[in-house]
């Protein structure tokens, strides 16, 4: 099975080219990190994988689990196991996480022709996962992301990921705006969730995150292209001398 293969992808927004003949292959169970300066197209890549309709795919192909990903809309992609942990999770006032995530997980189960979860069993699952991440019941009572601190929002994303159990998770600068403690909590959550069946694409600006999560591959991205791929030593190099060598 081809898990994820991005082939010669060209993407533009408002006529401006952002991803330029972009290529990347990720196998099941792998952790990839993409690093690159601001404006290099990292978030664009994340959003195109998630199916955001604001971006125009001019040419190229994305295969995910042997399926043509570009033929699916946002929710269909989510339902087959793509999860995007947002850089800036949006506030949804008045909407509680329990019915929200229950609808979420059931959309996925329905897609897999599996029985849906009733409210009681879902609430139990949510509580368990929240406890694992040190999220108290008070936080579960609040409206989604509403009035949350940066760290709380990111923890909420991790909680949703661990409940929905996606096979492929994209973290878009999950580390930005987090202090050391919050970063530790978030990365612990990711490490707990990681196993041989799920894969990750970690987009980050700094090497710090990679002190906590050990990637199999590190890619350097600039001007909509991957310029160099390697292992963790690449991240160490960037930390030392920045992006000017790329």
């Amino acid at each position: 099975m081809i898990f994820l293969n991005i082939n010669n992808l060209n993407v533009s927004i408002e006529g401006k080219k952002i991803l330029d003949d972009f290529n990347l292959t990720i196998n099941q169970g792998e952790v990839h990190a993409i690093m690159g300066p601001n404006g290099s197209g990292k978030s664009t890549l994340a959003n195109v994988l998630a199916g955001n309709e604001d971006y125009e795919v001019n040419s190229g192909k994305i295969i995910f689990k042997d399926q043509d990903l570009l033929g699916l809309n946002i929710e269909e992609r989510a339902q087959i196991g793509i999860f995007l942990a947002f850089q800036y999770p949006v506030e949804i006032p008045g909407v509680n996480i329990t019915p929200f995530l229950q609808a979420s997980i059931n959309s996925k189960l329905k897609n897999e022709n599996k029985p849906e979860l009733d409210t009681l069993s879902f609430a139990k699952l949510l509580k368990e996962k929240a406890k694992d991440l040190g999220i108290g019941p008070d936080m579960l009572k609040r409206s989604i992301n509403t009035g949350f601190s940066g760290g709380e929002k990111k923890r909420y994303e991790i909680l949703q990921m661990s409940v929905l159990n996606p096979e492929f998770t994209i973290f878009d600068e999950t580390d930005s705006g987090l202090d050391v403690d919050a970063l530790r909590i978030v990365t612990e959550g990711i490490n707990k969730f990681k196993n041989d069946n799920n894969s990750f694409l970690i987009i980050t600006h700094y090497q710090k995150l990679l002190d906590y999560i050990n990637p199999d591959y590190v890619h350097v991205m600039r001007n909509g292209k991957i310029l160099k791929s390697g292992d963790i030593s690449l991240a160490v190099e960037i930390e030392k001398s920045g992006y000017q060598n790329f």
């Binding site: 998630a50 199916g51 955001n52 809309n73 946002i74 929710e75 989510a78 339902q79 999860f83 995007l84 947002f86 999770p89 949006v90 949804i92 929200f100 995530l101 609808a103 979420s104 997980i105 959309s107 996925k108 897609n111 949703q160 929905l164």
Partner: peptide
């Protein structure tokens, strides 16, 4: 943005 967020979580 809210619609995108919800749909990314699988909601129609």
């Amino acid at each position: 943005e809210q619609l995108y967020y919800c749909r990314q979580r699988g909601l129609s």
